[in-house]
C-alpha cells in the first residue's frame, strides 16, 4: 500500500505492507534507527515518536495509519546543529546511561512540557509512566526534565516540533 508521510520535515512516499509497524517503517524504510524497540506489548516506550505532535508508541501504530501524518523522531529534534533544550539537559544532568530508552524518554518529556511547561516532580514522574529505563533509576531523568523546563521557559516559549510543510 502506498503511503505518504512527513518525517522530520521531509515528505516521503513508500509502498508498505499494511502490517508494517510505524517503528519498523521509520527504522527499516526511512533508515531512522534512533527509534528503538524494547518490548512487544506497548509497555516500554522506547519506540516513542511524535505523531502530529503527540507522543505515541510507534510499535502500536501501523505505518498505514500514519498516512498523511507528520512524524518527528529523535533525529528531528535538534535544529540547525543545535541541541533541543531537552537533549542538552539530558546530557548535563546525566539523564541517560546505555541510551536505549533515551529517544523515547526525550520525546515523551517533550510531550509533557508542551502541555505543562512547569511540571512538579510528581507530574514529571507521572508523565514518564509509559517509559521504562533500567539504568538510571529515573532520578537524573526527572532532573533533566526539570532543567529543560526552566531552560525553555527562560529562553523561549515551549517549542512545539512542527514538521515543515
Amino acid at each position: 500500500m502506498k503511503i505518504r508521510m512527513n518525517v522530520n520535515g521531509n515528505w516521503r512516499e513508500d509502498d508498505v505492507e499494511p502490517r508494517t509497524l510505524l517503528v519498523h517503517y521509520l527504522r527499516d524504510v526511512a533508515g531512522l534507527t534512533g527509534t528503538h524497540v524494547g518490548c512487544e506489548t506497548s509497555i516500554c516506550g522506547a519506540c516513542t515518536v511524535l505523531l502530529n505532535q503527540e507522543a505515541v508508541k510507534s510499535c502500536t501504530v501501523f505505518a498505514v495509519q500514519a498516512n498523511g501524518a507528520q512524524v518527528t523522531t529523535i533525529e528531528g529534534l535538534a535544529r540547525e546543529g543545535k541541541l533541543h533544550p531537552l537533549q542538552q539537559s539530558f546530557w548535563e544532568e546525566h539523564g541517560l546511561q546505555c541510551g536505549f530508552c533515551t529517544p523515547g524518554m526525550i520525546l515523551v518529556a517533550h510531550q509533557l512540557l508542551c502541555r505543562n511547561p512547569h511540571p512538579t516532580q510528581e507530574e514529571i514522574r507521572k508523565g514518564l509512566e509509559g517509559n521504562l529505563c533500567r539504568c538510571t533509576g529515573y532520578q537524573h531523568i526527572v532532573k533533566a526534565v526539570q532543567s529543560a523546563a526552566s531552560k525553555m521557559s527562560a529562553t523561549e516559549p515551549v517549542r512545539a516540533v512542527a514538521a515543515a510543510g
Binding site: R27, L32, T33, G34, T35, H36, V37, T73, I74, E75, L77, A78, L83, Q87, F90, W91, E92, H94, L96, G99, F100, T102, P103, I106
Partner: peptide, 19 residues
C-alpha cells in the same frame, strides 16, 4: 564531567546491533 557518550545517544545516532 559531562559524558562523551551522550551527544550521539541523545540524538539517536548511536548504533546498536539492530541498527
Amino acid at each position: 564531567i559531562k559524558r562523551k557518550e551522550d551527544p550521539r545517544l541523545i540524538q539517536g545516532r548511536g548504533h546498536y546491533v539492530d541498527d
